[in-house]
Amino acid sequence: MLTQTPIAELPFLGDEVVASYDTARVVILPIPYEATTTYRKGCEHGPAALLEASHQVEYFDEEFDREFWPVGIYTHEAIADTRRGPVSAEEMLKQTQETVAKLIADGKFVIGLGGEHSITTGLVEAYRQANDEPFTVVQIDAHGDLRHEYEGSIHNHACIMRRVVDMGLPTLQIGIRSICKEEADLIKEKNLKVFRAREIAMNPGWIDEAVASIATQKVFFTIDLDGIDPTLMPGVGTPEPGGLHWYAMMTFIRKVFEAHDVIGADVMELAPISDSVVSEFTAAKLVYKLIGYQAVVKGWL
């Protein structure tokens, strides 16, 4: 459902639990940027829809028998907002990198909300510059996103993980079920770690194997919502059948948080469907779970 409410009036979870920037441990960063969508458009409306849906999320988490909002959650003003007019890829990446760099310097745990997946380049670059040691980018996605360029742009949403590989960072791809030959060749050439959706469906031990394959202590999560099966997450730009299911995905994510130091995350490619709220609500609950897992492992509560 498309919302006309300005993002500034949509703090994550609602006004009742909003924290000031200075006291917040977590910053939600809306980036409603869309420029290279190649199928179903509308992801620039994803952040606002997610934030509005978050007002319906229960504060109490039944998995951990507690509420997570007391960690302090601050919703940043939107950046690179193409709903207000065109924004170049270069300007979007500049705004994203500079904003995230400041948030990192201030000690915030950042969760970016997209918007199209190309945004992730700016977030990852900010973390790369802020960290002396390498970290693994763990991608949940239907698509490899490993093309060098697509439709004339190296900053197309289909190229984000190629940009990460070019940065020299290790990657782990989860739920992949759509790649082109160029991407298949690169996976073999670089020996990239990929847990394909088809293989996941036939391997009950995939979660432990995937977590054990992460060689770095630090991890950045990038979650393209089309990694989830479209029967559960229809509101995306490029749906693919056969994706991840909720409890398997959340078990994997929780185990990564418990075994590694998750330094930041993003949730991308929500494209709301008129007269339906299931996708944005599911995405909002996913964001709250990310906050909860970080709060538990860091001992914030």
Rank of each mutant, 00 (worst) to 15 (best):
T231K: 11
D224C: 15
M250N: 06
T222Y: 01
K193G: 00
M233S: 03
D141W: 05
Q173D: 02
D226G: 03
F220I: 10
I228P: 00
P170D: 09
V165M: 09
A248C: 03
H157A: 14
E240W: 06
D261Q: 08
D229N: 11
V164G: 00
H155C: 13
A197E: 15
H148I: 03
D141P: 06
P241C: 13
Q217T: 14
D229I: 08
F221I: 07
V211G: 01
I140F: 08
H157N: 13
V138W: 03
W206A: 03
G227M: 02
E189Q: 12
T222Q: 02
M268Q: 09
A184S: 13
G264R: 13
M250G: 01
R162Q: 14
A142Q: 10
S153R: 09
L186A: 05
V267M: 08
A197L: 14
A248P: 04
F257V: 12
D266T: 10
K193A: 09
G237W: 02
Q173Y: 07
D166W: 11
T238F: 11
K255N: 10
G264F: 10
L192P: 01
E151D: 14
T231A: 15
K190A: 12
L146V: 14
E209W: 05
P234S: 04
Y150L: 08
L225E: 05
I228Q: 10
F195N: 12
T216R: 11
W246Y: 05
A210F: 14
S153M: 07
D185T: 10
V256K: 10
L192W: 01
L186S: 03
I154S: 09
V138K: 06
P170I: 12
A212R: 02
V219I: 13
K218P: 00
C180P: 00
R147D: 07
V219T: 07
G168A: 06
